[in-house]
């Protein structure tokens, strides 16, 4: 699954964003900044369906229902919240770096042989 499929595909994504738009303004602001951050960091879970993101909306909706402020839910350090959320996740950058290391290794072996 690609981010493209998730976003253009559409029904699931549109339903997801509709839930985001139904949140109070403060919650929407924080959600959108979180999404931006996660798109940059690129944990692989991001493309394994909308669960990572929709889980946050679940959390936020319940916070709203309980009458909490958004920062009461996430804590003031929203970046720390995001990092905790993807703590054990591989990112696409990790995968890329691993493949670079592998290519370099192979190239070195070739040189060693000749």
């Amino acid at each position: 699954m690609k981010i493209q499929d998730i976003i253009e595909g559409k029904k699931e994504w549109r339903a997801h964003m509709a839930r985001v738009k139904a949140l109070p303004q403060d919650y929407q602001i924080v959600y959108k900044e979180i999404q931006k951050y996660l798109f940059k960091v690129g944990p692989v879970e991001l493309t394994e369906g909308t669960e990572l993101l929709s889980g946050i909306v679940d959390l936020f909706e319940e916070g709203v229902a309980l009458g909490k402020g958004v920062l009461e839910v996430t804590g003031r350090d929203v970046a720390a919240f995001c990092d905790d959320l993807i703590k054990d996740s591989k990112t696409y950058a990790d995968i890329y770096q691993a493949s670079v290391a592998q290519e370099v290794n192979q190239a070195m072996k070739k040189i060693a042989k000749t």
Partner: peptide
């Protein structure tokens, strides 16, 4: 805060240490 607890619950789920049921509230 709730967010911190949430991040740990996500991890417990991922590591299959809990069973989960979604129920209406």
């Amino acid at each position: 805060v709730d967010g911190t607890v949430y991040t740990i619950l996500v991890r417990l789920e991922k590591n299959k240490l809990v069973d989960i049921e979604k129920k209406p509230s």
